[in-house]
């Protein structure tokens, strides 16, 4: 990197009048704010809970969430809408319509990326494949070996999204299906270590695809007492993941959790409980020197 910089610097010095600003990449630039809205374990709760519900009276509902997302889009320029799995199963909407209504409404809300949870397989892998085809947004996962699965051509390892000058990589981490899902329903899906697979892919996205920020949509679960891999462990044992949006354990995190990773950097974990009674919101601000550099360059012409 240094030798490249020097090379550029030398060319710049020799080339033109641009020398005043060209060697410097450290000019303070304008900020870019990315607003992330996210859900997990919505479990087909299309409607709000009943008014007399003991835990969540009159809370949740897709039509309200849609209004909330629209409202944020009106005030924020860069919005990402993400889901961490278990979209399906839990109300008669799923028994009757097999998830089609859920996916169509998520299309209408402009979801950008989702991952799959264990309950996505409840009607079998063929039915899941049908629903993924209806989605306007990609489903990502990097630790399921899908070579023998009909999901192979329907899923992606990652999705890169450019928001302003910020390049964001979104990956998916899936829970071990053994013991959770009937093997006849999920078919032949190999489970690989989410820490290894996730960090390797996140590293690739940072170093080769030049992503500035890596988001992991995780359906692993927030924290376990036993030796099951959880989000805390992923955060502690990786280098390249910046944000983990979790699921599966139905954990309401009133404040995001901050964990120090292998390199001493902060990893943020968030999870929104379940059933869509809360919508997660994260505002992430990036300082943007690159843009400033371009302005400096343009001024030379």
């Amino acid at each position: 990197m240094n030798s490249r910089r020097n090379f550029i610097k030398n060319i710049a010095l020799g080339a033109a009048a641009g020398t005043l600003v060209l060697p410097s990449c450290k000019v303070k630039g304008s900020d870019t704010k990315i607003t992330i809205l996210h859900t997990n374990d919505v479990h087909s709760h299309i409607d709000p809970f009943p008014k007399d519900h003991s835990s969540y009276p009159n809370q949740g509902g897709f039509a309200r969430r849609a209004a909330l997302i629209k409202q944020v889009r009106r005030t924020e320029e860069h919005v990402l809408v993400l889901d961490s799995g278990d979209i399906f199963q839990g109300t008669p909407y799923f028994n009757f319509y097999k998830g089609e209504l859920d996916i169509k409404l998520m299309n209408a809300m402009g979801y950008d990326v989702a991952t799959i949870g264990n309950h996505e397989f409840d009607n079998g892998v063929e039915e899941l494949a049908k629903q993924i085809k209806i989605a306007d947004f990609p489903f990502v996962n990097c630790n399921y070996g899908l070579e023998q699965s009909i999901l192979k051509p329907l899923m992606q390892a990652y999705k890169i999204i450019q928001k302003g000058v910020v390049k964001i990589g979104v990956i998916g981490l899936g829970i071990e299906l053994y013991g959770l899902v009937d093997p006849n329903k999920c078919g032949d899906i190999k489970y690989n270590c989410p820490i290894k697979s996730g960090d390797a892919l996140a590293g690739y996205l940072k170093n080769k695809e030049n992503c500035d920020y890596i988001i992991a949509l995780s359906h692993l679960g927030y924290q376990y007492k036993g030796d099951k891999v959880d989000d805390i462990e992923v955060a502690q044992n990786t280098e390249n993941i910046n944000l983990i949006l979790g699921g599966h354990t139905h954990t309401f995190l009133d404040q995001p959790t901050i964990i120090t990773n292998k390199q001493g950097n902060d990893v943020v974990i968030n999870q929104t409980g379940w059933a869509g009674v809360k919508l997660g919101r994260l505002d992430i601000v990036f300082s943007d020197d690159k843009k400033d550099q371009r302005l400096a360059y343009n001024s030379q012409l």
Binding site: K167, D254, N270
Partner: peptide, 12 residues
């Protein structure tokens, strides 16, 4: 030079 400056979060 794209640097993370701040993160704030809440559940709505």
């Amino acid at each position: 030079n794209i640097e993370l400056k701040s993160t704030s979060g809440k559940l709505v």
